[in-house]
């Protein structure tokens, strides 16, 4: 067991040399890397949080849009239904008017036909009456002279 003074001094010089090397070439790069990683991780975490928040925002927004779309679709459907009903109503109206018109025209025609037939009938009745009267009188009637009388008669029937 011995303590050697030269050894102590030499060892101290070596020691300070080692500390200097550690301080200059080992400590700073590693602590720098550690610090950089720490900030990187912090940034990553912040970004992740931001992403999650924006995702939440987006899903909220999409839900809102969906709701709006649903309401709009409902509106459109209702409007279409209404329009269809209106169209049907309108068509019904037109059809009815047409039918009425057709009926009216038919009626008119019938009326005219009836009038025509009556006229014809009247004429025939006049002739018949004249022929009847001639037969009854058994004599010749001057058709020309009695035309006025006959016509009057025919108008009366």
């Amino acid at each position: 067991m011995q303590a050697s003074i030269p050894s102590i001094v030499g060892q101290m010089i070596v020691f300070f040399l080692f500390v200097f090397i550690t301080m200059k070439y080992i400590w700073p790069p590693i602590t720098k890397a550690l610090e950089e990683r720490r900030t990187k991780i912090a940034e990553g975490l912040a970004a992740a949080e931001k992403g999650a928040r924006s995702l939440q925002d987006a899903s909220l927004k999409s839900e809102e849009a969906l709701k709006e779309a649903r309401v709009q679709a409902q509106d459109i459907l209702a409007a279409a239904n209404k329009q269809a009903a209106q169209l049907v109503e309108q068509a019904k109206g037109t059809a009815q008017a047409e039918a009425e018109r057709i009926v009216a025209r038919a009626h008119e025609e019938v009326q005219r036909e009836v009038a025509h037939a009556r006229e014809e009938l009247r004429k025939q009745v006049g002739e018949l009456a004249v022929a009847g009267a001639a037969k009854i009188l058994k004599r010749e009637i001057d058709t020309k002279a009695h035309a006025d009388v006959l016509n009057e008669l025919a108008a009366k029937i």
Binding site: Q2, S4, I5, P6, S7, G10, F18, Y25
Partner: peptide
């Protein structure tokens, strides 16, 4: 030197081995 405190002798084993270990560490 066999004294308890040596003013002249170097402990070469301690010096060399510790320096080698230090160099390994560095």
């Amino acid at each position: 030197d066999s004294g308890f405190i040596s003013l002249s002798d170097w402990h070469l084993d301690t010096l060399i081995i510790s320096t080698l270990l230090g160099i390994a560490f560095l």
